[in-house]
Design a protein around this nucleic acid. Structure first.
Lengths: 173, 173
DNA sequence: CGCGTGATTGAAACCCTTCAAGTTTAGTGG
DNA sequence: CCACTAAACTTGAAGGGTTTCAATCACGCG
């Protein structure tokens, strides 16, 4: 059975804020049904979405969870969502740690860096149109489900301009 | 002692290509002296710098190294550089590494993550002027050492426009 | 039905790039 | 140490991509 099957299932209404900036993030969330977003707010209050977590994705503020520091991101449901709530104790280091535990910890950190590098390359190197196409590829079916403004906040343009991009793709596929 | 001290030191001339797209990345490089950049090329052939590694920084293509897939980034010296060449096997060693060494390794990875997360938030949420100021903060002294075009490729503007930004900052600090 | 939220459209303004000089700086061989 | 050359930096004008603002349209839901 599932690695997480021992942990509790929870039903969350739309727009539930699971973690906000300054909170300690104590759980990671495995999405059974629905969708969660993680995002940051910039100095002008604008929202930038780092990741979506539809069915079978996992989401959390890993940095806050691992190092027991205040979160820098927000986690919020976009739809009514059913999750498994996995406690941070499954991940965290205790004060007395074995070399093996540290090695496992190192593996996790390395993977975290790898993911960040990949996303960074995408944001830096692709045009807004390409980033939209990458979004469609990364999250199949999500474009039909999500409000356009969320997708815009993910690829880094205004909703108005994403609307423009879509029209261009309709005319010239 | 340092976790890397057993690994060989190598002297590299300026503009040495350590890894290129399609290679398997089998090492990580700890910079003793000099500077290395990691970058990607977009579809128009333009260079986007993900990270600099001056003295005491470590650099590699983690995605390629960890998952044993072809690299998507390039690693290249900007100056004549002295490095320790750390084999990827280090990251799967089970024994003969002390907890203390692993803790030091953890610290380095933590800094790497912090930088990567900050950088992602930057690219998504900050203006080009702010990104330049963040570069100055992240890499003190590097602005005086590096050709401007590299800095421009890092913050994501043309060299001409970075020149413009600098002038604005001179006039209105 | 009517209302609020989200999507589209258009115009003006802004940020940034491109292109094309011109100027300065740095590297190299004599 | 100088002279020469290539590379790097600056500057300006024109143009494209993107945002902002404002108005309009479409639709799901009480």
């Amino acid at each position: 059975m599932d690695l997480y099957s021992e942990f509790p299932i929870q039903d969350l209404p739309k727009k539930t804020l699971l973690v906000q900036e300054g909170d300690r993030c104590l759980h990671s969330y495995f999405v059974i049904k629905g969708c969660i977003k993680s995002y940051v707010l910039d100095q002008t209050g604008k929202e930038h979405i780092l990741q979506f977590a539809p069915e079978n994705w996992m989401i959390t503020d890993l940095h806050s969870l691992l190092y027991e520091v205040p979160a820098t991101t927000y986690l919020e449901t976009i739809e009514a969502t059913t999750v498994r709530v996995v406690p941070s104790t499954l991940f965290s280091i205790k004060s007395s740690v074995s070399a093996e535990q540290l090695l496992i910890q190192n593996q996790k950190l390395l993977r975290n860096i790898a993911v960040a590098q990949k996303r960074l390359a995408d944001v830096l190197g692709a045009t807004s149109k390409q980033r939209y196409l990458n979004f469609l590829e990364t999250y199949p079916g999500l474009a039909q489900r999500l409000p356009l403004k969320h997708i815009a906040a993910y690829i880094g343009v205004t909703p108005e301009y994403l609307s423009n991009i879509r029209r261009q793709l309709m005319e010239k596929p």
